[in-house]
Each structure stands twice: as C-alpha cells, then as structure tokens.
Design a protein around this nucleic acid. Structure first.
Lengths: 159, 159
DNA sequence: AAAAATTACTGCGCGGCGCAGCGAACTCCG
DNA sequence: CGGAGTTCGCTGCGCCGCGCAGTAATTTTT
C-alpha cells in the first residue's frame, strides 16, 4: 500500500479501467447501431442466447435492470423485429416465455464471431498464465460488482 | 490456435468478458442512480478525472459517442449540478474547456474510493507483473475497440 | 479579402424509460 | 372450497436524453 511503485500501478490501472469500460460502451453502441437496435436490445439478446432456456419478461427485467413495464416494451421491439417470439408458459399462465429466433439471432452471433476473431489477436501474445490472470481478474470483478451494487442500493444517498 | 487448452482459455475468457462488461453496465447504472445522475454523466466525469487536462466539448462528444449538440447538453447538466465549469480557450476562442470542480467531484470520487477500497482487495493478491498484464490488456483492448468500431461503421449493414 | 472548415450552441421531434395502475392468474389460509 | 394477498405482464402517461439540422462565431485556407 505504501509501496510507491505499486501505488503508481494502481493509479495507472484505475485510469486505464475507466477508458477500457468507456471503450466498451462505445463498442456496444456501435454494434447496436450496426444492427439497427438499441444497446439494451443487444444486451438482452446476449443474455437470451447465453441461457439454455427461454426467459420470462420478469427475468429479463432483472438481468437488464429495467422495470417490468420497460421490459415488456423491450420484448415488443425484439418481437416486432423478429428476433424473439412470445410463448405462454403452461405451468404458470401469468408468465410469458421469450424465446430467441435462431435464424434471426444468427445475424447477431455471426457479427460477434467475426469481431471475436480479431479480439483473439489481442490475446495471442499472452502466455496461458497471463490469460488466466486476466480471466481471474474479470471473474472477481464480476462477483464483487454484484455485492457492490447491493451496497449502493442500501447506502444513504447524497443530497 | 489449435492448442486445445488455449482454445478453452479463449472461450472462458470470452464468456467472462461478456459477464464482466454486462456487470459493468449494471454497476454504472447503480452508481448513477445513487448520485442522482445519468450513466452518461457519470462516464463523462470518469473520463474528465482520468485525463490530466481539461477537455473540449468536442473531445467529450468523441469520447462518449455523442453528437456535439448532445455533448453541449451533457455539459449543461454537469455545470448546472456544479460538477464542472466552462472556461473559454484562449488559443482558440471557438473552443470551451470543461474542467471538473474538485470539491464537487470529490463526492463522486469518494464513492469510487469507497468502492475502490473493496476493489483493491481484488488486486492485492496480484503481483506487480500481474497488474501490468491486466493494465496492458486493457490498453490493447481499448486500442482495438477503436478500430473495430471504425470497421463496424464501414461494414455493410444488414437490412 | 473571400471562401471553406471547425467549434459550440439551439429548436424540434423521436423514442426509451420509470411510474402508477390494471386485469389475469397463482398461492396461502381458514 | 373461497376469499385475501401476491405475482406477472401489459398499458397510458409524462419526463428527458438524444440525434438532426440549422446558426453564429472563430479559425484556417486560398
């Protein structure tokens, strides 16, 4: 902590993190623009295709941070664009299952794959150990962010 | 590339990246909610404090992906809330320099530091070399995203 | 000196989003 | 059973961030 060279590394890392995450926001926006969708829609498709089973509107709302009302409209847009279909849940007739349409979503995943190939070149000069370091850091940050979000919600707000 | 263990690492890294970045979106939203700001505003403050010198409205527009008109309004909001000040550029009188107000931004950085203390525990078990690996990766990804965004813009759009 | 380019700002309309409220369906008890 | 309370998805409403197009001021170019 009092180690100056380490402190400098922290500082540099903090600054780089901000640019890194800002860059991601721009990237996501560019992907959405390219597909004629909104960033939220892209994230929703990403979540839908990552899950093995269809999600309910409520689950989508939770994973995107939207209200159920906004999630309904999100699904409306995706359905109108042909990316997903609504299916009533037979177990619970209040629920609506949202299923991605494979041939339509393929256009999105194809783009991801295409971009992913280029991303690989970034990692190509890293050793396996280094890749593990990076992956581990992401996983930790991911876990921590969840608890931090919860903490933010319970913290007293300024103003 | 044909190395199976390395391919697995890539796959894992890709999946983790998506969760990592999705988590960041939610985290950023939570921070913005907590401060009573918009995610874009928070990102802008993040960028401003990450840069050593004040930025122009045009530069802010570029870094956030907004048009100059929207960037003007973004600065309007931040100025009205007291987070930044506008200063005319003496070298080029068309330009307006946007400078963060330290004591006001302190409220934001205090939150970051508070959260960052916990984040530091994530880094504490990393060696200096490992920290450098992470930082370098971010820098590279940052650079690549720029070219990828350009590629997306020139790519033929589907539909 | 005139023309072109750059920078920041402003009216206008679009649309995503939260909020509050609705009906339908499910769960829990007595 | 059956009524109260809860959950789920949907809808009308208003807010406001954003892009677009145009403008004025300043700089750069010719």
């Amino acid at each position: 902590m009092t180690d100056p060279s380490r402190a400098r590394l922290y500082e540099e890392l903090a600054a780089e993190s901000r640019r890194y995450l800002a860059a991601y926001t721009l990237f996501n926006q560019a992907v959405a623009d390219h597909l004629g969708l909104h960033p939220t829609d892209v994230q929703c498709l990403s979540l839908l295709t990552a899950e093995p089973e269809p999600l309910t509107v409520k689950q989508i709302a939770g994973m995107t941070g939207l209200t159920t009302g906004s999630a309904t409209r999100l699904v409306d847009r995706l359905e109108r664009a042909g990316y997903v279909t609504r299916t009533p849940d037979r177990q619970d007739r209040r629920r609506v299952l949202v299923t991605p349409v494979p041939e339509r979503v393929a256009r999105v995943t194809a783009l991801w794959d295409d971009l992913g190939q280029t991303w690989q070149t970034v990692f190509d000069d890293n050793s396996e150990d280094e890749l593990k370091v990076i992956t581990r850091h992401m996983r930790r940050a991911n876990d921590l962010s969840r608890t931090q979000i919860e903490r933010l919600r319970t913290m007293p707000k300024p103003g």
